[in-house]
Each structure stands twice: as C-alpha cells, then as structure tokens.
C-alpha cells in the first residue's frame, strides 16, 4: 500500500440465529471499513497504523475510530438486504440480538464503543427465532 491509501480496518462478520436471512442468507462476511470515520472536519487521510503520537494528533482532525456502533450502521447501509427494523433499533442492534467481539460478550467490551482492530471477529446472533 502506498502512503496515499486511506487506512482501513478489515474484520470478519458472522450472523447466526436467523439473522443471516437478512444478509442474503450468508453467514460469514469479510468487510473493510475506514479505520476512522469520515468527518466533515477532516479532509486529510487518517494516521498510519504505527506511531501512537500520529494517532493522537489525527484523532482530533479525523472522525472517531471505527467502532462496533459504526460497523452496525455500515452493515445496515451496505450489507443488509431486507427488513432493517429486525436488525437495528435506534443507534444500536435491536434488543434480543447478541453481539460477540472475538468470542466475548460485547457487554464486556464496551458494546458499541469497542474500537475495531484488524482481524477482529464480530458475531451477531438473534435470540428471537424459534424455540
């Protein structure tokens, strides 16, 4: 990658418990997101992956780093094929959908505030389908 490329973070997303039906009936997806959210205040590229000081400086200029809350919105806008109300409610997933970050309950990882890292695995499971 050249220095001009916009930093992205790529993660694996998995759907279960019937949620996959809203995503073209495909359980596993690889998605690459901008590492930092596009922000009206920033016209510049984000920081490089190494160098903490760069990150700190750029954080003010660019938007916030891509987190799970952003991923949820991105999935709704880009991958969801039907019935968004079954996936998203307000700013987060619909109650009754469990989220795991690298096989850990997202409630232990800060929920939507968890900042995505390269190679993370995010799992969404509906608890609402069938007994």
């Amino acid at each position: 990658m050249g220095s001009q490329s916009i930093p992205t973070v790529s993660v694996k997303v998995e759907f279960g418990g019937g949620l996959e039906l809203l995503f073209a009936n495909q359980r596993t997806h690889r998605v690459a997101l901008l590492a930092r959210l596009p922000s009206p205040a920033s016209g510049t590229a984000g920081p490089s992956n190494d160098g903490q000081s760069d990150v700190a400086v750029a954080a003010a200029a660019a938007g916030r780093p891509a987190d799970v809350a952003y991923l949820i919105h991105w999935l709704r806008d880009n991958l969801l094929t039907e019935r968004p109300e079954l996936f998203v409610e307000g700013e987060t997933v619909r109650p009754g959908i469990l989220v795991l970050v690298n096989d850990t309950d997202w409630e232990l990882e800060g929920e939507g505030d968890y900042v995505l890292k390269e190679g993370d695995e995010i799992v969404f499971i509906s608890t609402l389908h069938g007994g």
């Binding site: 279960g16 418990g17 019937g18 469990l98 096989d103 499971i125 509906s126 389908h129 069938g130």
Partner: peptide, 12 residues
C-alpha cells in the same frame, strides 16, 4: 454458541 450445538433457526 460456545458449545457449537447444531440448531435450526428460522421463523415459522
């Protein structure tokens, strides 16, 4: 999920 049990999940 953690036991990787095999179940079916589609709404009637």
């Amino acid at each position: 999920y953690f036991k990787k049990l095999d179940y079916f999940s589609t709404e009637c």
